[in-house]
Structure formats: structure tokens, C-alpha cells
């Protein structure tokens, strides 16, 4: 079985983002970029499936600028076998990404597609589900455990208030949550080996996909800073205000 993993290049999770003064977006100049943490978990899960003998090939795909090759190489250093970059300098919306991934799925015919549940930049949490709809596949989002058998995969999902387990027909889409696994470190020899693994570069035009989006970002602002409220004189006054004014207890 082939496993396809989609990864995204995003601002490193340790970097404090800063809104540009012209409010056109977030300042990314000379800022450290990295693989989206949820995508790293997806890569790790796929590599573990290969190590268990469930998967025989792990293909990693990214859609983004040329430098997103770095993240594909990282995925290959972690154990993916080959990479595909769909190169575009346009920032694409989830729907366009899902359409492109659908085409990759058509070509590669994977048994499982594993994606991060969301990227830490746009925080959309859409791509995996959209791909599921477009490719007519079942989905197990927010996975914290997966068990693959002959024709199905059992996925434990982190839902509000607990865990839900579903059985999905293969081929299926999995999106990863934090507790699915702890990704390994890439070793130096594997980083060097990854430089020689095959990496195919395509463009959206190669797939004949229209990437125009119905969404337009008009403005990006810093969140409103909180301001100091009132000082209360006693516990009873505090309780009274929480009950009657803020209505939170």
C-alpha cells in the first residue's frame, strides 16, 4: 500500500508572529520557516506504517514556493521515500490545495492519505476533509490512534469531550492530532541521504486545476490588547460580579 502525506511550509511554531504595519499580512521576511507541526506527525505516522510493513512506499507532497523543497527534504530525512512539489508562488486556499491533492491522489492511488489537521498559519482545518469529499474518500479527522487492516482502517478521533472510534473503508483520509505520535529527529546521515531521494516538481497547470479562490483577505490586524478591568474589594463582590455582570458562573 502506498501512503501519501501532504506537508506544508509554515512559520516556525517558536516564532512570535508580527502583523505588518500596512496590515497586509504577517511579516515573514527572514523569519524561520519549518514544516507544520501537525504535518510532521503525519510524516511520522506514515513512516511508522512503513516500518510495520503496512505501507510499502511513503510519498510526500507539498504545494507552495520552490523553497518548500526544504520541507519535502525534511520529510524524506524522516523516512519518506520520494517527494512531489507542486510549485506555485501564489498563496493558495484550502479548496485549491484539495483540488491539486485530488489530482495527485488520482495519479498515485494511495491506500491512505495522511495530513495534519490544520496548519498553524491559516488555522483553517479544511484541506483533509475537502480532499475526502473531492476524492470520494472516507475520513478520520483529529486522529490519536490508527490501526490499518486489510480493507479498512480503524481511527480513534479526539472529539469534544472524549474519543470516538470509526471504521473507514480504504482508501481513506486521516488528519492528525497532537497525541497521535511524537515525531522522531532526523539524523545527520538521513539528512544527507534525503538529498539524493527523488523529488518531482510539477505546477498547478500540469494538473489543469483552476486555483482561483472565492475568498479575499482584506486586512490582517493585531488582536486587540486586553485592558485592565476593575479591582474588586472582596470575594463576595467578585462572586457577585461574575454571576450578575459577566454571567460566567
Amino acid at each position: 500500500m502506498k501512503v501519501l502525506v501532504a506537508v506544508k511550509r509554515v512559520i516556525d511554531y517558536n516564532i512570535k508572529v508580527r502583523v505588518k504595519s500596512d496590515q497586509s499580512g504577517v511579516d515573514l521576511a527572514n523569519v524561520k520557516m519549518a514544516m507544520n507541526p501537525f504535518c510532521e506527525i503525519a510524516v511520522e505516522e506514515a513512516v511508522r506504517l512503513k516500518e510495520k510493513g503496512v505501507a510499502d512506499e511513503v510519498i510526500v507532497v507539498s504545494i507552495g514556493p520552490k523553497v518548500a523543497q526544504e520541507q519535502i527534504r525534511t520529510a524524506m530525512a524522516l523516512g519518506a521515500d520520494r517527494g512531489i512539489l507542486v510549485e506555485t508562488d501564489e498563496p493558495l486556499e484550502s479548496l485549491a490545495i484539495a483540488k491539486l491533492l485530488t489530482k495527485v491522489v488520482e495519479v498515485e492511488q494511495p491506500g491512505l492519505v495522511i495530513l495534519g489537521k490544520q496548519s498553524i498559519d491559516a488555522d483553517n482545518n479544511q484541506t483533509g476533509q475537502m480532499l475526502g469529499a473531492l476524492a470520494g474518500m472516507s475520513q478520520g479527522t483529529f486522529a490519536s490512534e490508527i490501526n490499518v487492516s486489510e480493507n479498512s482502517v480503524e481511527v480513534t478521533r479526539e472529539i469534544d469531550g472524549g474519543l470516538q472510534t470509526l471504521s473507514l473503508n480504504l482508501p481513506a483520509i486521516i488528519t492528525t492530532d497532537l497525541r497521535l505520535n511524537e515525531p522522531r529527529y532526523a539524523s545527520l546521515p538521513n539528512i544527507m541521504k534525503a538529498k539524493r531521494k527523488p523529488l518531482d516538481v510539477k505546477t498547478p497547470a500540469d494538473f489543469g486545476v483552476n486555483v482561483i479562490s472565492g475568498l479575499k483577505t482584506l486586512l490582517v490586524e493585531s488582536p486587540q490588547e486586553r485592558s485592565a478591568g476593575v479591582l474588586v474589594g472582596s470575594v463576595s463582590e467578585l462572586v457577585e460580579k461574575l454571576k450578575n455582570e459577566a454571567k460566567v458562573i
Binding site: 508572529v17 502583523v19 498553524i120 491559516a122 488555522d123 483553517n124 482545518n125 482584506l218 490582517v220 490586524e221
Partner: peptide, 29 residues
């Protein structure tokens, strides 16, 4: 497209939503 996790309605086609874990607020149409 989907507009995820809106926190404010600006107009019938324009909304605010947090991005970057709430460190920025985008207005999208």
C-alpha cells in the same frame, strides 16, 4: 471556500477570523 472559526460578522459577506493561533485577526470577504 470555507470560512473557518469566525469571531465577528462585518457584513453578510465579510467576516473576522483569528489566524496564527489568535496572534493576528484576518478580515476575509
Amino acid at each position: 471556500s470555507q470560512i473557518s472559526e469566525i469571531t465577528a460578522v462585518v457584513s453578510a459577506d465579510t467576516f473576522k477570523r483569528p489566524i496564527y493561533a489568535g496572534n493576528a485577526i484576518a478580515t476575509v470577504q
